[in-house]
Design a protein around this nucleic acid. Sequence first.
DNA 1: TTCAAGTGTCTTGACATCAAGATATTGCGA
DNA 2: TCGCAATATCTTGATGTCAAGACACTTGAA
Lengths: 165, 165
Amino acid sequence: MEDEVDRLVAAWRRERPDLDVEPLEVLSRVSRLARHLDRARRIAFAEHHLEPWEFDVLTSLRRAGPPYQLSPGQLLTQTLVTSGTMTNRIDRLTKKNLVERLPDPSDRRGVLVRLTAEGRDKADQSLAGLLDQERAILGELSRHQRGELAGLLRQLTAPFDNIPG
Amino acid sequence: MEDEVDRLVAAWRRERPDLDVEPLEVLSRVSRLARHLDRARRIAFAEHHLEPWEFDVLTSLRRAGPPYQLSPGQLLTQTLVTSGTMTNRIDRLTKKNLVERLPDPSDRRGVLVRLTAEGRDKADQSLAGLLDQERAILGELSRHQRGELAGLLRQLTAPFDNIPG
DNA sequence: TTCAAGTGTCTTGACATCAAGATATTGCGA
DNA sequence: TCGCAATATCTTGATGTCAAGACACTTGAA
């Protein structure tokens, strides 16, 4: 089936036949799909009275395992936001009693962010819902195709994730 | 090579062995890669004194072909933003003399947004730069792999693009 | 010991985005 | 013809994000 990127690429080939626009076949689809996923996540989380950004922070801490705490810096690399954004997020989650700030005992510049019991519950509840939604979206693909897709995407993300970018 | 999503999935399997987190292998990579691409685009466009959102609007109009005009509604489906956002974008681009608003002769509710000569130049210049950057990122993949990746992604985006979502 | 560079977090101000609703126009059905 | 739902765009108010820089602490070299 045709998608919006097929139309976009065809339009460029008509308007700018001098350019090779083949890279857009991959990367425009990545960007557009991510926007669609954001919208779908926002709607799904609304049932839990949770914003996507809250989910990102709470589940990062949940994944860390007991005692469910990370430094703001570690949260930055997981969520790909800037430090100012993370400070703001931690402030708001603290007000809602989902996380708390603790001094880092080993570095007096540092802080640790810890999940509260309530925050842990929210993280666990919302993860299951997200996975259900994602399974529905991926229903288009066979098991084999998903593996293939994951592998190809890993080749693109690995340089960003490993060479500090 | 391992990426951040491999670590993320491993952490979930340790903390929540009861859940099947396989969907994250694909969709978390899509979201994270899109964020990396946003950052890279922002840096690349800064050389042209252009914001990513300006690029999106100007190139949508450029692709339309002469006379380089679309309705705000058509721009919405291409850029995946809300109507309020688009109104705001058109206002700002108008102030910079990159686009202009015209009344739609066939529907008095409607408006047409048209690229100025200056706007068209900006679109053409920045597209070439973006393609160079994207080619560098895709250097990881063979020609065959890019085709495969584009095809798999199309299967995921087509439902969003065709069934109005 | 001391100082300079590096690191980790927070503050600030500008700005882009969204959701919801207002306004104007069209066009279908009775 | 009339009225009402649908359509197209804009307005409003709240909020999240970013870039840049400030501040406090740490580390390593002289």
